[in-house]
Simulated assay, not measured.
Amino acid sequence: MRNDHDPHSVNFLIDEPGPDPRFGRVRADAPSIVWNGGMAVFALAAGPFFITPSAIILFFLTTGTALLLGHSVGYHRMMIHGSFAAPRWLTRTLVWFGAFVGMAGPLGIIRAHDTRDWAQRQADCHPFLAHRTHIVRDAWWQIYCRLDLDRAPRFDFSELDRDPFYRWLEATWRWQQLPVALAFFAIGGWGWVVWGVAARVAVANHGHWLVGHLAHNRGPQRWTVDAHGVQAFDVPWAAIPTMGEAWHNNHHAYPGSARIGLHPGQSDWGYVVIRLCERLGLMWDVQTPERLGQRAGLSEVARHEAGLAAHSAYGHTS
């Protein structure tokens, strides 16, 4: 649970003995197959027949807005990690944009994120939670299946359950696409529905899996977190489309930070928005590595490798 003494903690998961991230069964999940598969098939089948300049522009605008305001700033940095504070009207707006992405409701995204976060901090966990399997199988697992752990962790959603807005959004997150689709149809016809809803949702869900798979298997790496069974990597080519989320190695190092692109040249549009809102007085208590302080068990890869080399040389000469 959110811990004032540990700003890097897993925020909504109840830390207690008993849950085990190693054992469970991966099962096909009918709602995910219908939703994610249906959006993808509809977009692939109808997209070529309804492609227009305005539909393509709408696709990029709505996808970019949803990923920036919804997934990155609203869901991930604000709601899940509490890396900044904002007035209620703005937090609700950002969380709605999170549901607009079409990936999950607010409680569902927290449960999926925090389960994976908790599992990857253990010495070992199920391959589903570590993305530790063949890329094709991992795509099937992550997009169309669910993992039922034999001993799953519990969550404390009391903070969010008190707000009827979060309960309503959790119950209706898929239906949030309907009024959007109706508005798009009234303005631009079926082309706007196909590209502004189906293609957007399909790309967001499948793209989220792809970046997540790569970010736990290969790429540049500056940090390691001692005792964690799963380490993270950066996916530089995805920095702009993910609004900065692809600097995943930085995020594992400082999960409570509102800034994810920590080093020169690392694009982070999510943090740009947060800084702008902070200057306008719309966000405050913005957390960065400087405010969070040094994380226990965090090592820089270059220094770690240099230390190993020196130790090896010393051992050889002795």
Rank of each mutant, 00 (worst) to 15 (best):
276 L>T: 09
97 F>W: 13
55 A>S: 14
124 D>W: 09
48 P>K: 04
274 I>N: 01
157 F>G: 05
257 S>P: 08
293 G>R: 08
110 I>F: 06
25 R>G: 01
93 T>H: 07
278 E>V: 02
129 L>P: 11
268 D>E: 05
78 M>A: 12
255 P>R: 11
19 P>W: 12
85 A>H: 09
300 E>S: 11
136 V>C: 04
43 A>P: 00
117 D>I: 00
199 A>V: 08
128 F>I: 05
299 S>M: 10
164 P>H: 12
182 L>Q: 03
294 Q>V: 14
159 E>S: 15
178 L>S: 03
94 L>H: 11
172 T>F: 04
42 F>D: 01
148 D>N: 15
265 G>I: 11
298 L>D: 00
136 V>R: 02
72 S>M: 10
161 D>P: 00
228 H>R: 13
297 G>H: 07
184 F>I: 03
299 S>Q: 14
74 G>W: 09
243 M>W: 05
207 G>Y: 10
211 V>Y: 06
155 F>S: 07
48 P>Q: 07
204 A>S: 10
139 A>P: 01
222 R>E: 05
110 I>W: 05
318 S>G: 14
192 W>R: 08
245 E>R: 09
62 T>N: 11
179 P>H: 02
205 N>C: 14
152 A>T: 07
230 V>Y: 04
150 D>W: 11
305 E>G: 03
71 H>I: 13
236 P>E: 10
184 F>Q: 02
268 D>R: 05
223 W>T: 00
257 S>H: 12
30 A>Q: 06
171 A>G: 04
